[in-house]
Amino acid sequence: MILIDRLCYFSRLRYVNAGEKTAFSVLTLLACILSRSAMIGLFVLAATGVLTVHKGGIPLARYIKLLAAPGAFLLLGTSAILINVSRTPLDAFALPAGPYYITGSFEGLMQGQRLLLTALASVSCLYFLALSTPMTDILAVLKKLHVPALVLELMLLIYRFIFVMLSLASDITVSQHARLGNFSLASSRKSFVAMVSSVFILSIRRSGEIFDALESRCYDGTLRVLPEDHPAKLSEIVGIAAFELLLYLAVIFLKQSGGAR
């Protein structure tokens, strides 16, 4: 989370209009979900990968590591579809284990592969957005989409205070370690609980102080700030539109040819 936040500020795509990036990310994500096709998944994975790594300048190794986290989850999830335990062997593979077989069908394999690729591709769409667009820009897009101001203000404050609270928590943890607070399992458990409770109390106090500070700058219930706006470029819009058009044509074609493979 913190890593993604740091990376997105260095992305070369940061100053591309946030609306464009959001549209691209969401439309492509929808295409993945609608098609449920391994081919579309592979294609999207490649496209977002090129955009994030090549265009955005996010280091490839970092990107792969970031994808590996949800990837591992997906592998575990799909393994339930891929692998069966039954008395009768299925057509793809079968490993005898006593009276049972650890076995799988071609049907299952195809389904698992489809699921894995589309899910991973969907994640990569969101990563594209997260790794190129700072939170404040995303908030600006949501505002244009008429998301209620209250929700947006909460998001803004929560986002800012994640960092304040994290640094509080880490300061307290460091000072506990300096006094051997993690000496044994029992003491580190105790320290952790103490840290969490004091961060909670401090955060309540903080919220009061921030409210005073906001009030002293004439806060009246609405957080009014300048919009973060980077002008949209026609060439980019045309590019995104062309890409999505092709993608959706491919999705429709695959659906009609029945296979959706």
Binding site: P134, M135, T136, L156, L157, Y159, R160, V164, R206, E209, I210, A213, L214, S216, R217, C218, Y219, D220, L223, R224, V225, L226, E228
Partner: peptide, 26 residues
């Protein structure tokens, strides 16, 4: 106007420009 002692207890926005724009917009 008051500048508070600890900036972390005053700054609420994640963006510097948005942060400074809060007062004048109000």
């Amino acid at each position: 106007g008051i500048v508070f002692q600890d900036p972390d207890r005053q700054l609420f926005s994640a963006s510097v420009r948005q942060e400074i724009s809060f007062g004048p917009l109000n």
